[in-house]
């Protein structure tokens, strides 16, 4: 059993070599181009320069308070989006009346770029962490809501017939059939939503904030520290990838039957 497992991971690792080669190749070309064409550091630094900066941000501990603030904003915003997205989505998906009176407005709101609302949120909620959490939540809310509604509306009609033939109550039908049925839909939406809430938090910080990775980008841009900006991008990427992978683990565990995007049939 364990032997089989090792073999599989080894095979996986060998399979990933070409992917790694692409990255190495790109970095080599980048470094060579920067050196050959003598591009100034304040325009485009090379990967070696940037990795030094990434390392020094880490060893000096400078990045951590910013990382922490942004992470809190992202996670809080994401959780709020989950709570509201799932509950409002469930209400709309289950009640034709609510769908009739609410859904057109939600579709209309969806067409507004939510980042454009962020300046208003700064006015209402201030320059502190709250305005960023609300921005993150607002952007992440819509994909969750829309997917919960869509999931509930596209539940396999044969499953509905089965529950009716078993004389299941409305609540039993929801808890035992509809809710689990939408999990693959929901988790696919959550993977998008977590990335959206990072966007929301960063945009919020751009507009005015003393701490957070977004504000660090603005500060470093002002002092033309381009390598420093790249370093922040690196940490943002690490955060995004970790959150996404975490969610995939979650999906694999709680919607293991899903074959959809991020369904984790691996």
């Amino acid at each position: 059993m364990s032997g089989l497992h090792t073999k599989k991971t080894l095979g996986d690792a060998i399979g990933r070599i070409p992917i790694l080669m692409t990255l190495v190749g790109l970095l080599v070309v980048w470094e060579a181009a920067v050196n050959c064409f003598a591009i100034p550091q304040f325009i485009l630094p090379g990967p070696i320069m940037i990795s030094k900066k990434v390392l020094s941000d880490f060893t000096s501990g400078l990045i951590f308070p910013h990382l922490y603030v942004t992470l809190v904003e992202v996670i809080a915003g994401f959780l709020l989006a989950c709570i509201f997205g799932i509950s409002i989505g469930a209400a709309i998906g289950l009640s034709p009346f609510l769908e009739k009176i609410l859904y057109p407005y939600i579709v209309a709101l969806e067409t507004i770029p939510k980042v454009a609302i962020a300046p208003l949120l700064i006015i209402w909620a201030g320059f502190g962490i709250h305005s960023k959490i609300i921005t993150a939540a607002l952007i992440a809310f819509f994909p969750i809501l829309v997917n919960v509604v869509a999931g509930l509306k596209t539940v396999d009609p044969r499953r509905v017939l089965l529950m009716r033939s078993l004389k299941a109550s409305k609540w039993q039908t929801f808890a035992k059939m509809r809710l689990p049925s939408i999990l693959p839909h929901l988790f696919a939406a959550l993977e998008i939503a977590v990335i959206f809430s990072i966007i929301g938090a960063i945009v919020g910080e751009f507009l005015g904030s003393a701490r957070g990775l977004g504000s660090l980008v603005i500060q470093r841009q002002a002092s033309i520290d381009v390598a420093g900006v790249f370093s922040v991008l690196f940490y943002l990427a690490v955060m995004g990838i970790s959150l996404n992978l975490g969610l995939r683990q979650f999906t694999r565990r709680f919607a293991f039957w899903s074959k959809g995007p991020g369904g984790g049939s691996v």
Binding site: R164, S165, F256
Partner: peptide, 17 residues
């Protein structure tokens, strides 16, 4: 009232979870 029946459809309609 709905009757007390057992029903089997063309597809199994099992819950995958």
């Amino acid at each position: 009232a709905l009757p007390d029946i057992g029903i089997v459809f063309q597809d199994a309609v099992l819950f995958p979870w």
